[in-house]
Protein backbone atom coordinates (compact mmCIF):
# COMPACT_ATOMS: atom_id res chain seq x y z
CA UNK A 1 0.00 0.00 0.00
CA UNK A 2 2.83 2.38 0.87
CA UNK A 3 4.61 1.68 -2.43
CA UNK A 4 1.35 2.14 -4.30
CA UNK A 5 0.84 5.56 -2.69
CA UNK A 6 4.37 6.63 -3.57
CA UNK A 7 4.07 5.41 -7.15
CA UNK A 8 0.73 7.15 -7.56
CA UNK A 9 2.16 10.41 -6.24
CA UNK A 10 5.20 10.20 -8.52
CA UNK A 11 2.86 9.52 -11.45
CA UNK A 12 0.71 12.54 -10.63
CA UNK A 13 3.69 14.84 -10.25
CA UNK A 14 5.80 13.53 -13.13
CA UNK A 15 4.27 16.01 -15.52
CA UNK A 16 3.89 18.79 -12.95
CA UNK A 17 6.28 21.74 -12.82
CA UNK A 18 8.26 23.44 -10.06
CA UNK A 19 7.01 26.81 -11.32
CA UNK A 20 3.54 28.18 -12.15
CA UNK A 21 2.21 26.84 -15.45
CA UNK A 22 1.21 29.07 -18.38
CA UNK A 23 -2.42 28.64 -17.31
CA UNK A 24 -1.62 29.83 -13.80
CA UNK A 25 0.32 32.80 -15.19
CA UNK A 26 -2.81 33.82 -17.11
CA UNK A 27 -4.84 33.73 -13.88
CA UNK A 28 -2.14 35.81 -12.15
CA UNK A 29 -2.15 38.36 -14.98
CA UNK A 30 -5.95 38.64 -14.74
CA UNK A 31 -5.70 39.73 -11.10
CA UNK A 32 -6.14 43.37 -10.11
CA UNK A 33 -2.85 42.98 -8.26
CA UNK A 34 -0.58 40.42 -9.89
CA UNK A 35 0.36 37.91 -7.15
CA UNK A 36 3.11 36.14 -9.10
CA UNK A 37 6.12 37.67 -7.36
CA UNK A 38 4.69 37.25 -3.87
CA UNK A 39 3.78 33.62 -4.61
CA UNK A 40 7.28 32.79 -5.86
CA UNK A 41 8.91 34.58 -2.93
CA UNK A 42 6.72 32.74 -0.41
CA UNK A 43 7.55 29.36 -1.94
CA UNK A 44 11.24 30.22 -1.70
CA UNK A 45 11.02 31.48 1.90
CA UNK A 46 9.05 28.49 3.08
CA UNK A 47 11.57 26.16 1.44
CA UNK A 48 14.34 27.54 3.65
CA UNK A 49 12.13 27.25 6.72
CA UNK A 50 11.00 23.71 5.89
CA UNK A 51 14.53 22.46 5.22
CA UNK A 52 15.74 23.96 8.50
CA UNK A 53 12.90 22.51 10.56
CA UNK A 54 13.18 19.13 8.82
CA UNK A 55 16.92 18.97 9.57
CA UNK A 56 16.28 20.00 13.18
CA UNK A 57 13.67 17.27 13.52
CA UNK A 58 15.52 14.34 11.96
CA UNK A 59 19.16 15.38 11.73
CA UNK A 60 21.28 17.45 9.31
CA UNK A 61 22.17 14.37 7.25
CA UNK A 62 18.54 14.21 6.14
CA UNK A 63 18.23 17.84 5.03
CA UNK A 64 18.38 16.92 1.34
CA UNK A 65 15.50 14.47 1.79
CA UNK A 66 13.50 17.32 3.28
CA UNK A 67 14.32 19.50 0.30
CA UNK A 68 13.16 16.79 -2.12
CA UNK A 69 9.88 16.32 -0.29
CA UNK A 70 9.24 20.05 -0.20
CA UNK A 71 9.85 20.33 -3.95
CA UNK A 72 7.33 17.56 -4.60
CA UNK A 73 4.92 19.46 -2.38
CA UNK A 74 5.44 22.62 -4.46
CA UNK A 75 4.59 20.73 -7.67
CA UNK A 76 1.41 19.42 -6.09
CA UNK A 77 0.59 22.91 -4.76
CA UNK A 78 0.73 24.54 -8.23
CA UNK A 79 -1.17 21.65 -9.79
CA UNK A 80 -3.98 21.81 -7.25
CA UNK A 81 -4.07 25.63 -7.37
CA UNK A 82 -4.63 25.51 -11.12
CA UNK A 83 -7.36 22.91 -10.77
CA UNK A 84 -9.08 24.93 -8.01
CA UNK A 85 -9.04 28.11 -10.08
CA UNK A 86 -10.51 26.34 -13.10
CA UNK A 87 -13.35 25.01 -10.92
CA UNK A 88 -13.95 28.41 -9.35
CA UNK A 89 -13.96 30.09 -12.76
CA UNK A 90 -16.60 27.65 -13.93
CA UNK A 91 -18.62 27.95 -10.74
CA UNK A 92 -18.51 31.76 -10.38
CA UNK A 93 -18.00 32.82 -14.02
CA UNK A 94 -15.12 35.11 -13.04
CA UNK A 95 -11.48 35.25 -14.08
CA UNK A 96 -10.14 37.81 -11.61
CA UNK A 97 -9.17 36.03 -8.40
CA UNK A 98 -7.10 38.89 -7.05
CA UNK A 99 -8.32 38.70 -3.43
CA UNK A 100 -7.86 34.94 -3.14
CA UNK A 101 -4.51 34.83 -4.93
CA UNK A 102 -3.12 37.67 -2.84
CA UNK A 103 -4.19 35.98 0.39
CA UNK A 104 -1.07 34.82 2.26
CA UNK A 105 -3.04 32.41 4.44
CA UNK A 106 -4.68 30.75 1.45
CA UNK A 107 -1.31 30.05 -0.17
CA UNK A 108 0.38 28.94 3.03
CA UNK A 109 -2.54 26.59 3.79
CA UNK A 110 -2.58 25.16 0.29
CA UNK A 111 1.17 24.62 0.24
CA UNK A 112 1.04 23.06 3.71
CA UNK A 113 -1.68 20.66 2.55
CA UNK A 114 0.35 19.67 -0.49
CA UNK A 115 3.49 19.08 1.57
CA UNK A 116 1.44 17.15 4.15
CA UNK A 117 0.24 14.80 1.40
CA UNK A 118 3.85 14.21 0.33
CA UNK A 119 5.00 13.67 3.93
CA UNK A 120 2.15 11.24 4.62
CA UNK A 121 2.88 9.39 1.39
CA UNK A 122 6.50 8.78 2.31
CA UNK A 123 5.77 7.91 5.93
CA UNK A 124 6.04 9.80 9.17
CA UNK A 125 9.62 9.11 10.16
CA UNK A 126 12.36 10.18 7.78
CA UNK A 127 14.95 8.33 9.80
CA UNK A 128 12.99 5.07 10.01
CA UNK A 129 15.21 2.05 10.33
CA UNK A 130 18.58 3.68 10.67
CA UNK A 131 18.87 3.06 14.38
CA UNK A 132 18.78 6.65 15.60
CA UNK A 133 17.27 7.09 19.01
CA UNK A 134 15.54 10.41 18.30
CA UNK A 135 12.93 9.59 15.67
CA UNK A 136 10.60 12.53 15.25
CA UNK A 137 7.01 12.21 14.20
CA UNK A 138 6.68 14.48 11.18
CA UNK A 139 3.03 13.65 10.59
CA UNK A 140 0.21 16.13 11.04
CA UNK A 141 0.09 18.58 12.79
CA UNK A 142 3.89 19.03 12.57
CA UNK A 143 3.48 20.97 9.29
CA UNK A 144 1.35 23.60 11.07
CA UNK A 145 4.17 24.51 13.44
CA UNK A 146 6.70 24.58 10.56
CA UNK A 147 4.61 27.03 8.52
CA UNK A 148 3.26 28.87 11.58
CA UNK A 149 -0.24 28.13 10.39
CA UNK A 150 -3.46 27.99 12.40
CA UNK A 151 -5.33 24.68 12.20
CA UNK A 152 -8.56 26.57 11.52
CA UNK A 153 -7.08 28.09 8.37
CA UNK A 154 -5.52 24.83 7.20
CA UNK A 155 -8.93 23.17 7.51
CA UNK A 156 -10.40 25.55 4.91
CA UNK A 157 -8.41 24.12 2.02
CA UNK A 158 -8.81 20.38 2.71
CA UNK A 159 -12.12 19.61 1.04
CA UNK A 160 -11.38 21.82 -1.98
CA UNK A 161 -7.96 20.14 -2.24
CA UNK A 162 -9.57 16.69 -2.37
CA UNK A 163 -12.08 17.87 -5.00
CA UNK A 164 -9.34 19.47 -7.08
CA UNK A 165 -7.06 16.41 -7.17
CA UNK A 166 -9.08 13.32 -8.20
CA UNK A 167 -5.89 11.24 -8.44
CA UNK A 168 -5.37 11.20 -4.68
CA UNK A 169 -5.33 7.64 -3.36
CA UNK A 170 -7.95 6.45 -0.90
CA UNK A 171 -5.28 6.36 1.82
CA UNK A 172 -4.39 10.01 1.24
CA UNK A 173 -8.04 11.08 1.29
CA UNK A 174 -8.47 9.15 4.53
CA UNK A 175 -5.38 10.85 5.94
CA UNK A 176 -6.70 14.31 5.07
CA UNK A 177 -10.07 13.38 6.54
CA UNK A 178 -8.33 12.39 9.80
CA UNK A 179 -6.60 15.78 9.79
CA UNK A 180 -10.02 17.44 9.40
CA UNK A 181 -11.47 15.49 12.31
CA UNK A 182 -8.53 16.28 14.51
CA UNK A 183 -8.84 19.99 13.74
CA UNK A 184 -12.58 20.00 14.32
CA UNK A 185 -12.37 18.06 17.56
CA UNK A 186 -9.32 19.65 19.08
CA UNK A 187 -6.81 21.79 17.20
CA UNK A 188 -9.22 24.54 16.08
CA UNK A 189 -10.18 25.11 19.73
CA UNK A 190 -6.67 25.77 21.01
CA UNK A 191 -5.77 29.12 22.49
CA UNK A 192 -5.11 31.71 19.80
CA UNK A 193 -7.37 30.10 17.23
CA UNK A 194 -9.14 32.52 14.83
CA UNK A 195 -12.32 30.60 15.64
CA UNK A 196 -12.90 32.51 18.89
CA UNK A 197 -12.81 35.91 17.19
CA UNK A 198 -15.26 34.67 14.56
CA UNK A 199 -17.62 33.36 17.22
CA UNK A 200 -17.42 36.71 19.03
CA UNK A 201 -18.08 38.62 15.79
CA UNK A 202 -20.99 36.34 15.01
CA UNK A 203 -22.51 36.99 18.43
CA UNK A 204 -21.99 40.75 18.04
CA UNK A 205 -23.77 40.71 14.69
CA UNK A 206 -26.68 38.95 16.34
CA UNK A 207 -26.67 41.52 19.15
CA UNK A 208 -25.68 39.04 21.80
CA UNK A 209 -22.56 40.68 23.22
CA UNK A 210 -21.57 39.42 26.62
CA UNK A 211 -18.74 41.52 27.99
CA UNK A 212 -18.37 39.52 31.19
CA UNK A 213 -17.60 36.19 29.54
CA UNK A 214 -14.06 35.47 28.34
CA UNK A 215 -13.97 34.46 24.70
CA UNK A 216 -12.26 31.16 25.46
CA UNK A 217 -15.19 30.12 27.64
Amino acid sequence: AAMNNIQQLIMILNSATDKPSDTLIVYFNNCTVNPKDSILKRVENLEHIFKKKFAEAVGPAWAEIGSQRYKLGVRLYYRVMESMLKSEEERLSVQNFSKLLNDNIFHTSLLACAVEVVMATYGRNASQGNGTSAETDLSFPWILSVFDLKAFDFYKVIESFIKAEPSLTREMIKHLERCEHRIMESLAWQSGSPLFDLIRQSKEREGQTDQSEPSST
Binding site: M84, S87, E88, R91, L92, F97, K99, L100, D103, I105, F106, K156, V157, E159, S160, I162, K163, P166, R170, I173, K174, E177
Partner: peptide
Amino acid sequence: TQDYHFGLEEGEGISELFDCD
Protein backbone atom coordinates in the same frame (compact mmCIF):
# COMPACT_ATOMS: atom_id res chain seq x y z
CA THR B 1 -13.94 9.75 -2.39
CA GLN B 2 -16.82 7.39 -1.73
CA ASP B 3 -16.28 7.41 2.03
CA TYR B 4 -15.36 11.07 2.32
CA HIS B 5 -18.00 13.44 3.60
CA PHE B 6 -18.21 16.55 1.42
CA GLY B 7 -19.48 19.34 3.65
CA LEU B 8 -19.48 22.29 1.26
CA GLU B 9 -22.89 23.13 -0.14
CA GLU B 10 -23.79 23.69 -3.77
CA GLY B 11 -22.94 27.40 -3.87
CA GLU B 12 -19.83 27.16 -1.69
CA GLY B 13 -16.20 26.90 -2.62
CA ILE B 14 -12.73 28.04 -1.68
CA SER B 15 -13.54 31.68 -2.54
CA GLU B 16 -16.26 31.84 0.13
CA LEU B 17 -14.08 30.14 2.74
CA PHE B 18 -11.47 32.88 2.35
CA ASP B 19 -14.09 35.67 2.21
CA CYS B 20 -13.46 36.38 -1.43
CA ASP B 21 -17.05 36.19 -2.68
